[in-house]
Write a protein that binds this DNA or RNA. Structure first.
Length: 869
RNA sequence: GCGGGCGUGGCGGAACCGGUAGACGCAACGGACUUAAAAUCCGUAGGGCAUCGCUCGUGUGGGUUCGAGUCCCACCGCCCGCACCA
């Protein structure tokens, strides 16, 4: 039979039109079926997409299509995380308005995304820069403000002293501003904060319930929140102007090993001490140099400066410790002051060695020999468990007991009329600074009045729209310079006032978009709809968002709940973090990056510039990026192989959470498979029973084997998709196609009997349904061949007969002393005794035993037999 | 610096809860079909010794166990995040 080849260039656009015309992916909130909300993290509209962007959308689409087949009312929306820095950079570099640039990018990327055949409800599309989106965000801000979850305080920014502008961390390169090259300083500005720490305990404990999140993400969030139980200890100081210093520690047990105290450079004590000490003043100034990022602060050389002030040890009257200012102490964490116990903390040890401070061991690790001397010699701090030594009343106690004993002692001891110690729960998590001194973001709806202070913009006057008439010819925030926009009347007293010119962190935009998708098109949060759809059943995105975005979204959902806007507290019930698509990089003889289509691979493994003999250097696979040109545009793939092949390839081989390499060979393999599948379906229709044939009474061994394989396929792939193990699902389809191919070959040798004809037909229908979520266009085409009514996209998942999933005979591997020596074929229901008897009667086993007597036989049901001799 | 993860044939990877390591695919090689090519189909295939078979083998080194890719300890390499990139 001259079977036609599957032609994606013709069929794919046709089926996409059919889906669009019939609006089958339009989701209604009043649909009575059980809901299922699948969401991929929405993209930043950076320009054009490459095939690497498509991976997580395709994964989400497989889940969405599969859940539809399982009878769910599926919500699968898409939008644009459209505010942010790159739009302003485009404005500065190319003179194009951020709004124009952004909306042009959205239009282009939407066209490209549509090529992928995703089952999205485009009616719910939003861009966070749409006024109706950020209008609601401003209303939510005011709600949070009124709830006391928003406040203003000073906090540090990266300051470029040449451009006189605030820099993002990524704009600070080696401690210098990216444009001016000036050494960056830390500068304090009054900024707006969300009180995320209000929910710290709940954000932490609720992680236990998120059982469909990866453990690693939950662990990262736990560590980020960083709950610790410790002690605040007040030390009496020798300074009359600063009588005591409060220190937070999680290791009060090591207090007898203390050798110094240290405070942050911007601690009030540091400022006070520097008053009469120019050298210390200079050191504090030096500490302000460099950016604000923790990475920069913690990797720089640890330095300290002795203030000359002494602190009296709270447990040993007359023992005085020096007080340092140190560049690695953060004012935001704890009390901004620490005591250093060098023997039991690595950072303190490095510091003590550098400044020649004593190092006294006070914890003896379990099993270690008692040192003769309290002075500790090593370079690796002992931060593990053990028992206290050289510590007076603590000697012999465990670390935990000693912590408690010190806390009890200091709680009852007073200094200046108050307890000297106080047990305290502390969090590493800091409140969320949302102020950005930039134009292209959601304006913070606050008006500053000289007499009334900061006043939220009244609901009736919202939204505060971004003005369009701005210029980017100078560094800094154009809103600051826009006097007409800035000047307003105070909503409270009517007096002259000015608008807040900070805009919100774009993480605010992405902290509630999933709730907006659930709501209607007018932009307001629809409580009933949000409560119906949330939480998102399956959220899919990159691991790089494991902490910040996900934590902020969890916070914001709680905040909205506490304002009475919605009833849900946790936004994402299921989370999956997918890997990136990587591609080889290519450089020509001049070191210039080349696009993949400019490179030709020769049979000998060498690479040359297409159409020439110029050699090309092939680099290792890296994340697809415009700058390295190792990108593959989706149009090119769609035109040559079709998007189903691209989808199939993206789902194949590599586990979805791992990075996957895009190769020409891989996409060709997908093409071959698509053609093979199409041929097999054609052949099955020719040889198999007609549509709707009655179930035969009896099935022979061949037809039973095929039916078992088909039903097993549907059951296994269903389980694989539920667990998002797409690569395994693909492998199972391949394995089934191999079995199907054999059955078809056997059937072709004669006229198939009724039972085999039925099984062939059934297998074809199962196969098409099973691959439909992954290659939906091809499946629709096969659906037509099968004479199916209606669209495969709207069909049901195959119904599996459980009787066909159980085998009556199994093969058990037999080990002797843990090494496999034989195989035993035995009834699936055989008892332990029967298995043991059969094992010892087996010829191969007896030969391998060489007459030795079995000491023990371990039978693991349906798994393995191990004979120990 | 701190937190988290990953490491299995030539390549991508499979292996449930500690139970046959290498499923499935790619590349390769051999064969069939063809005037030829493409396409397709069939077959071979971790290393070593080699006759059934034996032996080594999941980044490295130790350990627990009847049995370890899987659990524990130490180390090496790579990747992600670190609060103003999104």
């Amino acid at each position: 039979m001259a079977t036609e080849r599957y032609n994606p260039r013709e069929t794919e656009p046709r089926w996409q039109r059919v889906w669009a015309d019939r609006e089958i992916f339009r989701t209604r909130n009043d649909d009575p079926r059980p809901k299922y909300y699948v969401l991929e993290m929405f993209p930043y509209p950076s320009g054009r997409i490459h095939i690497g962007h498509g991976r997580n959308y395709v994964m989400g689409d497989v889940v969405a299509r599969f859940k539809r087949m399982k009878g769910f009312n599926v919500l699968h929306p898409m939008g644009w995380d459209a505010f942010g820095l790159p739009a302003e950079n485009a404005a500065i570099e190319r003179g194009i308005h951020p709004k124009t640039w952004t909306y042009e990018n959205i239009a282009a990327m939407k066209e490209q995304l549509k090529l992928l055949g995703l089952s999205l409800d485009w009616n719910r599309e939003v861009a966070t820069c749409d006024p109706d989106y950020y209008a609601e965000q401003q209303r939510l801000f005011v709600d949070l403000f009124e709830k006391g979850l928003v406040y203003r305080r000073e906090s540090e920014v990266n300051w470029d002293p040449v451009d006189n502008t605030v820099l993002a961390n990524e704009q600070v390169i080696d401690g210098r501003g990216w444009r001016s090259g000036a050494v960056v300083e830390r500068k304090k500005l009054a900024q707006w904060f969300f009180r995320i720490t209000h929910f710290a305990d709940d954000l932490l404990s609720a992680l236990d319930e998120l059982d469909r999140w990866p453990d690693k993400v939950r662990l990262m969030q736990r560590n980020w929140i960083g709950r610790s139980e410790g002690l605040e200890v007040r030390f009496r100081l020798s300074s009359p102007d600063f009588p005591s210093l409060k220190v937070y520690t999680t290791r009060p047990d090591t207090l007898y090993g203390a050798s110094f105290l240290a405070v942050a450079a911007d601690h009030p004590l540091a400022r006070l001490a520097s008053a009469g000490n120019a050298e210390l003043g200079a050191f504090i100034e030096e500490c302000k140099r460099g950016g604000t990022s923790a990475e920069e602060i913690e990797t720089m050389e640890k330095k300290g400066f002795d203030t000359g002030i002494k602190a009296e040890h709270p447990l040993v009257p007359g023992w005085f410790l020096p007080v340092y200012v140190a560049n690695f102490i953060l004012l935001d964490y704890g009390t901004g002051a620490i005591f250093g116990c060098p023997a039991h903390d690595q950072r303190d040890l490095d510091f003590a060695r550098k400044y020649g401070l004593p190092v006294k061991q006070v914890v003896l690790p379990d099993g270690a020999a008692m040192p003769g001397d309290a002075a500790f010699e090593g370079d690796v701090a002992l931060d593990g468990d053990g028992r206290l030594i050289h510590s007076d009343f603590l000697d012999g106690l465990t670390v935990a007991e000693a912590k408690d004993a010190v806390a009890a002692r200091l709680e009852s001891q007073t200094l200046d009329g108050a307890p000297q110690g106080e047990r305290k729960v502390n969090f590493r998590l800091r409140d969320w600074g949302i102020s950005r001194q930039r134009y292209w973001g959601c304006p913070i709806p606050v008006i500053h009045c000289q007499s009334c202070g900061p006043v939220p913009v009244p609901q009736a006057e919202l939204p505060v729209l971004l003005p369009d008439d701005v210029s980017f010819d100078r560094p800094g925030n154009p809103l600051d310079r826009h006097t007409a926009w800035r000047s307003v009347a105070c909503p409270r007293c009517g007096g002259p006032a000015r608008r807040e010119t900070d805009t919100m962190d774009t993480f605010v935009d992405s902290s509630w978009y999933f709730a907006r998708f659930a709501s209607g098109p007018d932009g307001a949060l629809d409580r009933a709809a949000v409560d119906h759809w949330l939480p998102v059943d399956q959220y899919i995105g990159g691991i790089e968002h494991a902490i910040l975005h996900l934590l902020y979204a969890r916070f914001f959902t709680r905040a909205l709940e506490s304002c009475g806007r919605i009833s849900v507290k946790e936004p994402f019930a299921g989370l999956f973090t997918q890997g990136m698509i990587v591609h080889e990089t290519y450089k020509d003889v001049n070191g210039k990056w080349l696009f993949p289509e400019e490179v030709e691979k020769r049979a000998d493994g060498s690479a040359v510039r297409r159409g020439t003999d110029e050699p090309v250097t092939v680099g290792p696979p890296e994340k697809m990026s415009k700058s390295k040109r190792n990108v593959v545009p989706p149009e090119v793939v769609a035109d040559t192989y079709g998007v189903d092949c691209a989808r199939w390839f993206m789902l194949s081989d590599t586990p979805p959470e791992r990075d996957s390499e895009w190769t020409e060979a891989g996409i060709e393999g997908a093409w071959r498979f698509a053609q093979r599948l199409f041929r097999q379906i054609n052949e099955a229709i020719e040889l198999g029973a007609p549509a709707g044939a009655a179930l035969p009474e009896r099935f022979g061994p061949e037809s039973t084997a095929l039916r078992r394989a088909a039903h097993r396929l549907a059951a296994d792939v269903e389980a694989d998709i539920e667990r998002l193990r797409f690569n395994v699902a693909v492998a199972r389809v391949h394995a089934f196609a191999n079995a199907f191919g054999e059955a078809l070959a056997a059937a072709r040798s004669g006229t198939p009997a009724a039972d085999l004809a039925f099984a062939l037909r059934e297998a074809a229908e199962f196969l098409v349904a099973v691959v439909a979520p992954m290659v939906p266009h091809l499946a629709e085409e096969c659906g037509v061949l099968l004479g199916r009514d209606g669209l495969v996209a709207e069909a049901a998942w195959p119904i599996v007969d459980p009787a066909l999933l159980v085998a009556d005979e199994i093969v058990l591997p037999v080990q002797i002393n843990g090494k496999k020596r034989a195989e035993l074929t035995i009834a699936a229901g055989a008892s332990q005794a029967e298995i043991e008897a059969a094992t010892l009667a087996d010829e191969t086993v007896l030969r391998a035993l060489e007459g030795r007597l079995p000491k023990k036989i371990i039978v693991v049901p349906k798994r393995i037999v191990n004979v120990v001799v």
